[in-house]
Design a protein around this nucleic acid. Structure first.
Lengths: 229, 229
DNA sequence: GTTTTAAGTGTTAATTTCACATTTAACAAA
DNA sequence: TTTGTTAAATGTGAAATTAACACTTAAAAC
C-alpha cells in the first residue's frame, strides 16, 4: 500500500559540496573548519539546507556562489546519503554534489562562519558525519567522468600547457602517464586550439599554451564523436 | 551564511523505482496504472515515501518487497529529482532507484491499489511527473553499469544459454553483437560455469546452460581483474 | 537414413595501445 | 659569439585488442 501525502514523514534535506581544485601538482578539495555546532572545530564539506522554493541544483549553486562569488561553476549531483543517524542533530538526509573550480583564477570569499582551506585529497583530515564517504565517492565519480567527458578543463586556467593537462589527469587518475602517448592522444581528439602564445615560466624554451574549443567539441559530439582519454 | 537546523525547510521525500526485466527479447520496465489521485488512471513508476526511520535503500527494498515478495533484488540509487513543481500535489523530491529482476522466476503480487504491467522500454506509455526522465536516466546508467559490472545476470534465470546472455546485452546496449566475438569475449572473462545440462526448448540440438560463478568472480576481482564487455 | 534447424567453433585483418630516445628552442654564462 | 643548460617537442615499431567473417555438428523429425 502506497503512503499518501498526508501520512508521509517530512525530513530535512541538506546539501554538501565536494569542491575540487588543482594546483598544478595535486588534486585538492576545499574544506571548512566549523565555527558552529554541532561538531564545532571539526573539518567538513561546505554545505547548507535545501529551501522549499529551490531545486537541489539551485541550492548547490547558491552555496557555491556564496563561497566564491561565481555562478558558472561545473556541478554534478553525486548521491543522496540517508543513514538514519548520519547527522546526530536531527534526521537529515544529504544530497552530495561535486564541483570543479579553477582554484588559481578564483579567490574564495571570506565568511565569518568558517575558514576554508584547500587540502590535497591524499592528505585531507578526517571529516564529520559521512563526509569522508562522500569525498571517496566523488573522487571515483570524477575519475570516471574525466576520461569520458571534457570536464578536466574546468580545473585548469583557460590557457594551459600540455604538461599541465597531463599532470591534471595524472592527479585525477592517480597514475603516471607517458608524455608522448598522452600528447598524441589529446591531439588526436582534435578539440584543443594551440595558441601562438607560450608559457615562459617553466623553461627557457617555453611551452605552447592550448585552449579547449567548446564549439568544436560540441560539433564533433553531434557528429558522433566520443571523448575518451 | 549556512542555514541552521531550526530555520531549514522540511520536505517530503518520495522514492520511485525503475524496475527492469528481460523477456528473452526486449528490456522491459514494470509500470503501474494509478488507481488513486493525483493523476489517477495514468501510468507511473512504482514508488512510495521515505519514512523517518529508514534509509533510502531500506525504503526501496520495502517498496520492492511489497510488490514482489522478494528481498534479494539488485538495487542501485540513481538520482534525486528536485524540480520545485515536479509533483503538483505537495513540494516533493524523489530519489529514483533502479532494480533488476528476473521477471520469469518472480511472480508479482497483486495489490488493490494498482495494476502492474511490463512494457518494452521502447514502447512504454507516457508517464506522470518526471518519471519519463527517470526512466531515460536509468537506461543510460544500466548501459554503463552492465558493461563494467556483472549485473546483467540479475536479469536472467540462474541458468541461461549464451544466446540468452547475448540477447540480453543486445537489448541493454541496443546494438547487434556478433555471436562468435561475444562468446569468445565472455569465455575469456572466465566467470561462468558451463553446466552438463542443455536447454532443449530452442532447438533440436539443444544449447548448453551456463551459470554465473560469483565466488570465482569475487576472487578474480581481488586479484585485480576488471570485468568489461 | 535423410532432412532440418539452431548450436558451436577459429582465423585473419585492422585498429588501438604501449614502450621508448633524440632533437630543438631559448636563455645564460663564459 | 660560442657553449652550456634546461625543459619542450616530436615519431616509430612491437604488442595487444578488437572486429569481421562461414562452415561443421548435434539432435530430433520425418
Amino acid at each position: 500500500m502506497l503512503s499518501s501525502y498526508s501520512t508521509a514523514d517530512k525530513v530535512l534535506l541538506a546539501l554538501d559540496c565536494i569542491i575540487f581544485g588543482f594546483d598544478q601538482h595535486q588534486l585538492k578539495i576545499l574544506l571548512i573548519q566549523r565555527d558552529f555546532e554541532p561538531e564545532k572545530g571539526k573539518w567538513s564539506l561546505i554545505g547548507g539546507f535545501l529551501k522549499r522554493t529551490e531545486t537541489l541544483d539551485d541550492a548547490a549553486k547558491r552555496i557555491l556562489n556564496h563561497l566564491s562569488g561565481l555562478d558558472d561553476i561545473y556541478l554534478e549531483q553525486l548521491y543522496t546519503f540517508s543513514e538514519v543517524d548520519r547527522d546526530p542533530g536531527e534526521r537529515t538526509l544529504s544530497t552530495a554534489y561535486y564541483a570543479l573550480i579553477n582554484s588559481e583564477d578564483h579567490k574564495l570569499l571570506e565568511d565569518g562562519d568558517y575558514t576554508a582551506k584547500w587540502f590535497d585529497i591524499k592528505e585531507a583530515p578526517n571529516l564529520i558525519f559521512d563526509h569522508n564517504e562522500m569525498v571517496q565517492k566523488a573522487i571515483l565519480r570524477l575519475r570516471r567522468r574525466a576520461v569520458s567527458k571534457p570536464i578536466g578543463f574546468e580545473l585548469l586556467p583557460e590557457k594551459f600547457t600540455m604538461l599541465q593537462l597531463q599532470k591534471l589527469y595524472e592527479a585525477i587518475l592517480d597514475v603516471e602517464l607517458d608524455k608522448r602517448n598522452f600528447i598524441n592522444k589529446v591531439n588526436a581528439l582534435d578539440i584543443l586550439v594551440k595558441l601562438d602564445e607560450k608559457d615562459m615560466t617553466s623553461s627557457r624554451k617555453g611551452s605552447y599554451l592550448y585552449q579547449f574549443d567548446k564549439e568544436k567539441y560540441d560539433q564533433k559530439i553531434e557528429e558522433g564523436f566520443t571523448f575518451k582519454i
